[in-house]
Structure formats: C-alpha cells, structure tokens
Amino acid sequence: MKKTYLIVLFFAVSLVQLYAQKTSSFYVDIGGGFSSFQDVKYSNVKYNGFGGVFGLGYLKENEKAIWGVNLQGIVTTEKAATHDNTVSTYNPMLQAKYLHRIRENLFIGATWDVLDLYAKNFDGLGNNSAYNVTGSTLWASAIYDYKKFRFGLDLGLVSYFKESTGFAFSASQNVLENGDFDYQNDKIDSPFAFKYYELRTIPKHFQVRTSIRYQLSNRFSVGYKWHLRKFSEVKKYPVTYGIHSLSIRYNIFKRTK
C-alpha cells in the first residue's frame, strides 16, 4: 500500500511539476520581409517587394495559458509589377494576446492588435502619394505545439479602422459620402480621428494570420509569419495586401521554473 502510495505520489508530483512549469521570455526578432499590395480603386497593378522586420516582445507561458505583448515593425520597398514605380511600406504594430490551454499542446484565445498602422508612400504621386490604414483588430487565435514547432493561426474577427483614401480622393470614403470634407477640418487627415473610423467584421473585412516557429535552442528560434488583409470600403473595389516575414528570435532572457 505504501509502495502504491509512493508511486502515485511520485506521478502526481511529477504531473504537478510538469503543469506548474512557467516560462517567461523577453525576446528580440530580426529578419526579412516580403509584402504585396493591390488597391483596385486606383489600379489593378500589384506591388511586391522585400524589406526588413524588427520586433520586441514578452511572452509568458504556464500550465493554464500563454500571454504576451509584441511590438513589431516591417519596412519594405515594393515595385509595381508592370512598371518601374515604387512604394515604401511601413507597418508598425503593437499586439497583446491571451490564449488558454485546451490540451497539453493546444491553446485557444484572442489577440488584440492594439495599434496596427499600415502606411505607404508612393513615389512620384501628389495627393495620392500617402496611403494608410490605421486601426485596431481583435483576432481569434490558436496555437498548436508539435515537437519543436509552434504553429499559430489568427482569424480577424472585428476591425476598428480608418482607410485614408476613398474612391476618387485622398480622404476616407465615409468622409466624402457623409459630406464632411472641409479644409478647416484637421481630423480628415489625421490617422487617429476616431470620428471617421469604421467597425468592420468578417467576412466583409477579411484578415488571417499564420505563423510557424521552430525552436533551434533555448535562446534561438526561427519563425515565419504571414498576414493577409482584404477589405472594400468601396463596393467591388477591394484593397488586398499580404506581408510575409522570416525572422530569427533571440531570447534576451528566458526563465523556466
């Protein structure tokens, strides 16, 4: 009886030890990116190009959940597919996420892009040189661990955002449709003028994000991320963009207890 008790106790303690394991890490990401863009309101020509990725983040994981915050920035230079004009793309983003452990290797939860600023600068254009989409998105998130791989999938549920350019002018479509345009109204050009933000949900506003990370060592991992966004503030004239990044993550500190 005593032996059985000791065996059960051993397994119970081991199990508690296993599930009580806590890992926290502060990391830096650095790598390269590839982005593509098409705004059918103005042209069907696709823009594609390469650039760099930088990120900082904190991630905490325990027996119940994963949560973390992440600040990342992507800069690329895209070239038109059918001519030589280029566009610079900047995409800084601040994210927070919380995922609950459903199984040992499966987490379900949410990610909140607190601020997602997607900005472009088209060389050689006048009023249409600047294009940006500013806002915030709530995502349904899942993480699945397999050996040294971690797979991530986010599905954009709802976005609260502003697109800077409407069907035929560099002001938001709702500003023009609502008859709010006025040169004395500074808010029209401000990416943070919430008055002109729209709340959009799937499927009209479609966003998906995938990721795959391979743990090379305790300090290093390599990850690939893909972000796709497609939406139409003017019916039948969609904006579509995708951003791919491949980065090395270095854990400045990683503690497990």
């Binding site: 593509s36 042209s43 069907n44 696709k46 690939y224 893909w226 497609k230 579509t240 995708g242």
Partner: peptide, 13 residues
Amino acid sequence: FSSCEKALMEPNP
C-alpha cells in the same frame, strides 16, 4: 503562402 494573397488579388492588367 507567399503567393496566397495574390490568389485573392485581381490579375495584373
């Protein structure tokens, strides 16, 4: 994946 979004875009003119 790098060509996924392109499948959702209109073809180049």
